[in-house]
């Protein structure tokens, strides 16, 4: 538990330093989802950093909201998929750490490109279907932005997964209520989101994505609901920018980088637990 929180603190430092170094990237959602992704990779998922694309007999994770790539890269590096020092190349020429995750440069840990929104749930469903065909008992996790649900392809996928009883899939929505142009309520209201997923035939759980205790409890519960003929969704309340007081709870930090002074301030709020890259 403490170890997971320490790891999340270091991951948040990585995120801020990566985005600051290139003055580019998306810190807000990355910070908000840090606790969840750390819990997946350091507690829940059966996975092998030696990385095989096919991931047979491993749990798989798909990031649909690819703009929170700093988080994904930090967690992969800290899990041993590639050298931690490589985080310094984020978004720079010739990097494997592209602005949005890609397989094209063969970065270990990434199984699909994402960035153009709304595509990841379909991909995760496909991977889950193949696990069933292969009699592979492991499961598939996916993460989606809430604003991303405005893309229609999601609802095609949501309908499909219930119809085909894709019950080895846990899709989590980063329910922070923010998107680039403002709050989701202002830009394009998602409500009532829980009822929508339920109406489409999913099993729905709710969770505080910035409370490690709650994450451990709710994801464990979700895992017990695998194999019950329904796909499972977690609506995960998070605070965009979580962990840095001046970034929290606003869409303003969706896609901008901190200045030198802001970085210093932000890092002072987060313990360096595992050593900066």
């Amino acid at each position: 538990m403490q170890s997971l929180q320490d790891t999340a603190s270091q991951v948040r430092r990585d995120i801020l330093r990566m985005v600051h170094a290139v003055q580019s990237g998306h810190p807000g959602g990355s910070l908000g989802c840090a606790d969840y992704l750390v819990a997946l990779y350091f507690h829940f998922m059966k996975h092998d950093p030696a990385f095989a694309m096919d991931g047979k007999n491993e749990d798989l994770f798909f990031l649909s909201n690819g703009h929170i790539s700093p988080l994904f890269y930090s967690v992969l590096a800290r899990s041993g998929y590639f050298p931690i020092a490589e985080l310094a190349t984020f978004r720079k020429l010739n990097t494997r750490l592209q602005g949005h995750p890609a397989t094209h440069e063969h970065l270990p840990g990434v199984r699909i490109a994402s960035g153009s929104l709304g595509q990841g749930l379909s991909v995760a469903i496909g991977a889950a279907l193949t696990k069933k065909l292969n009699n592979d008992p492991c499961m598939v996790y996916s993460l989606h932005g809430d604003g991303e649900l405005q893309e229609g392809q999601n609802w095609e996928a949501i309908m499909f997964a219930a119809h085909h009883k894709v019950d080895n899939l846990l899709a989590t929505v980063d329910y922070n209520g923010q998107q680039i142009d403002g709050s989701t309520a202002f830009v394009m209201n998602l409500e009532n989101l829980k009822d929508k997923w339920l109406a489409f035939g999913w099993d729905v759980l709710e969770m505080d994505g910035n409370d490690m205790n709650d994450i451990l409890k709710v994801v464990a519960e979700a895992k017990t609901r695998m194999g019950k003929h329904k796909p499972v969704c977690i609506l995960m309340k998070t605070i965009m920018g979580k962990g840095v007081d001046f970034m929290e709870g606003t869409h303003e930090w969706h896609g901008i980088a901190p200045s030198d002074a802001q970085l210093e301030n932000a890092l002072s709020q987060l313990s360096e637990t595992l050593g900066d890259y």
Binding site: M53, D54, G55, K56, L60, F62, R111, I112, Q119, G120, L121, S122, V123, A124, I125, G126, A127, A128, L129, T130, K131, L133, N134, D136, G152, Q153, E156, A157, M159, F160, H163, H164
Partner: peptide
Amino acid sequence: RFVQCGIAEANMIGIAAGMTIGGK
């Protein structure tokens, strides 16, 4: 080995991409 996607081509393409992961 047959997957009916309904009238939802975008989802079908994504599912196909995902199904390759694991060797289909």
